[in-house]
Design a protein around this nucleic acid. Sequence first.
DNA 1: CGTTTAATTTGAACATGTTCAAGTCAGAGC
DNA 2: GCTCTGACTTGAACATGTTCAAATTAAACG
Lengths: 226, 226
Amino acid sequence: MAIATPKTRRGETSRAAILGAALDLFQERGYEATTMRAIADRAGVSLGSSYHYFPSKEHLVLEFYRHTHELHLAAIAPLLGREKDLAVRLRGTIRAVVVTCEPFHAVAGSIFSTVANPASPLNPFGGAAKPLRDEVVALYDEVVRGSDARIASDISEMLPLTLWLYQMAILYFWIFDRSPGRLRTLEVIDETTDLIVKLLGLANLPVLRGSRKRLLGLIKSVVAST
Amino acid sequence: MAIATPKTRRGETSRAAILGAALDLFQERGYEATTMRAIADRAGVSLGSSYHYFPSKEHLVLEFYRHTHELHLAAIAPLLGREKDLAVRLRGTIRAVVVTCEPFHAVAGSIFSTVANPASPLNPFGGAAKPLRDEVVALYDEVVRGSDARIASDISEMLPLTLWLYQMAILYFWIFDRSPGRLRTLEVIDETTDLIVKLLGLANLPVLRGSRKRLLGLIKSVVAST
DNA sequence: CGTTTAATTTGAACATGTTCAAGTCAGAGC
DNA sequence: GCTCTGACTTGAACATGTTCAAATTAAACG
């Protein structure tokens, strides 16, 4: 149960070996097909040792997430540094998500469901995964802020979190996508990012003022409860 | 693995006992805390017998769903028979969902995650759960069709399925809702149903024509892949 | 009623996530 | 270098979902 941080060099080695073995095996065989015994075996430690550093198999997935998040950040850094158009930034960012996750496509389904479980410590709506979620939301904040789009403050306040939700939805679609090269997901991304930016532009129309205000208030109140 | 239909009177008794025990225990203790051994015990059969009628523990949940769906249908029948206003019909229907599910609130989390798993036979996007999903979509079709709202055919074509998705989202919010009497969920329902109906009215605005067409095309293409 | 066939039931056996008490080891303090 | 403390490791044990071959029972048939 206790989340032990390694205090000695030997401990660090063990923890790293366990994590490395887990990441490899999740990728090779998927989450469910990877047994804790297999992880311990490959890491060269005993079964019990894994539980000294990771309270559960699910917690190993959290590290898996962090890993892909790092890859994602590295993949889009050049784009975010150079491009100013919001649609292009957003499209590139979301495309990079699915491209980065592509090697884990077969695994993603079981992982997603683990994460969707509100009882799981990995649930992104407040749990052990919150720090990582905040990082992703911060990324979308940068996607928006770094663009030359002028967005009203009431919208831009809620936009990063909404885009994070949007990313989750795309990932869920991607999980089901069996098309070659996952082309359908890429099409949906192109279409939706474009649509989102268009709608952001339309949000200033007087007729939509009322609905916009209510929608934002709704999102804010929903988020407040997490 | 084989889904056996009872062929004898004794078989029917056993199947009913197992299902009844499972529904009771899921409600009493939740999904995960209910063991197959406990179900078999309460049903008065052996462990192996349960697997003769239900291929897995998850399949028992499917019956649980069907059960709540029947309750829901019964609860809203009077409203749908009398009321013509779309906003009222929709609000009443969704309210009835959460009210019907209220006794299972503590259980709902673990069940939801089981269902969200794309690898699960219970996943509503095409699997053993598809017939039930179709029934729910048909219900929303009736909610819309039975109202006096005039909705363009391109929208009404996709609306029932979209409302089903909306119901899923509300349920996910409800799962997290810790407010007394689940009042927050009811507030969100009131606000969202109202907003949905308003937006349906705005969809005819010329400025929104383009986005509307694209959005509907998108939904249709996404749904086509299930 | 006796026989035969198929449905039903059984419980042992297996795989796997998790726990835990006991053992082993590294390093700090002297 | 010795000792002691706490970090680390271990593997047996447990709980539980699932499988399966064998046993038992119901029903159909003559």
